[in-house]
């Protein structure tokens, strides 16, 4: 490699670092603004929306891009939530001993806990994915549902983690409320960017090829099984991060927070936005958070309407808001109806 191209590379990385600093600053600023102006109810919706975005974009990788339909992702979210809560609780005193009590130890504990949550959820995804991803279509859907339920039943019986009453750490006040705007949206930004990069790469194209025609993909030497397991694992790990964020939003987590309905919520998010579209998943995640919270006033009618909404979407616009397209291409179409698309 010549020194000229090494220089180009350095400039590139410097530019990126500057951009990253800018993004972090913007998220921090928005977070401060929100926390100083908005009422708690709105803050909660905003946090849930961010967590939903992470869930939706992660699920979209396997359900949308790869076309392998999982309806049991609440299980992986649960694994991430429990792992993050448990290891966060155990790591915190140790990190305080190392760094002294304060924001620094808290932030480090939290982010390490999230990474551990992702790791455990990803491992669970790997274990579930290897045997099941040979199955196709609706069978796979039902098996993921089964695994999701098994995971919940295991937590329901795990006495070390509080069994059915749930886990709330060692402190009687419950889990620390680490989750705030800054961390949720920083993680959301990182994960959405990372998953978008993955999707628009050779690997992402191969995943789409598997969705479109698995037999042809095999004939093109694409390692279909390995890629499916990879997508499933990454998707499960992403749900794990969301689980960790979710756990530290409240004082404790219970197995019933991760019931089948939660998996369906995730499916609704990616369906609303359009299966296979990252922009769609982002919009769908926000949509579900806002809809469910706003409809809370309707109390017992809420879930009836929500179910009805899902049915109507499937009957009227099964491809969702965006179809499989991304936002830029949708905007381009809106501007000039006959312009050519490019990737």
């Amino acid at each position: 490699m010549s020194s000229a191209s090494a220089q180009v590379s350095t400039v590139r990385w410097l530019k990126r670092a500057a951009f990253a600093v800018l993004v972090v600053a913007v998220i921090y600023g928005l977070g401060a603004l929100l926390e100083s102006t908005a009422i708690e109810y709105v803050q909660r919706i905003v946090l849930l929306a961010g967590i939903n975005v992470i869930l939706a974009v992660g699920l979209n990788l396997i359900n949308g891009t790869t076309g392998q339909f999982s309806i049991g992702h609440a299980g992986f979210m649960a694994v991430g939530a429990y792992a993050a809560a448990f290891f966060g609780t155990k790591l915190h005193p140790w990190l305080i001993g190392l760094l002294g009590a304060g924001a620094c130890a808290d932030a480090l504990t939290f982010n390490l806990a999230l990474c551990i949550g992702a790791l455990f959820a990803g491992a669970a995804g790997l274990v579930v994915g290897i045997p099941t991803l040979r199955l196709r279509g609706d069978y796979l859907a039902v098996v993921t549902l089964g695994f999701g339920e098994i995971i919940r039943i295991v937590f329901n019986n795990a006495r070390a983690l509080g069994a059915a009453t749930g886990y709330s750490g060692d402190d009687p006040a419950g889990l620390p409320a680490y989750t705030n705007f800054f961390w949720v949206y920083l993680w959301a930004t990182l994960l959405v960017t990372g998953l978008a990069h993955l999707t628009f790469s050779q690997t992402g194209r191969s995943l789409t090829a598997i969705r479109e025609d698995e037999i042809a993909a095999e004939a093109m030497a694409i390692p279909t099984t390995r890629l499916k397991v990879l997508a499933f694992t990454v998707s499960a790990a992403t749900a794990g991060v969301a689980g960790g964020l979710f756990a530290h939003m409240q004082s404790g987590i219970r197995p019933e927070d991760f019931k089948f309905e939660k998996s369906i919520d995730m499916v609704v998010m990616i369906i609303v936005g359009g299966l296979g579209s990252i922009s769609g998943a982002v919009v769908g995640g926000i949509f579900v958070a806002v809809t469910l919270e706003v409809m809370r006033d309707l109390s017992q009618y809420r879930l009836v309407l929500y179910a009805l909404l899902l049915i109507i979407i499937m009957l009227v616009r099964p491809q969702g808001l965006f179809g499989a397209r991304e936002l830029p291409s949708v905007l381009r179409r809106l501007r000039g109806p006959r312009t050519k698309e490019s990737s």
């Binding site: 993955l198 050779q202 191969s206 090829a209 479109e212 025609d213 042809a216 993909a217 093109m220």
Partner: peptide, 27 residues
């Protein structure tokens, strides 16, 4: 058996798995 929703160019590129040098992390 084409990958119908991919573009013509992407259909061809997808078969170039063996030409990849960079890792997933690279992507």
């Amino acid at each position: 058996r084409l990958f119908r929703s991919l573009t013509v160019e992407e259909n061809v590129m997808v078969a170039g798995h063996h030409m990849q040098q960079a890792s997933l992390i690279g992507a």
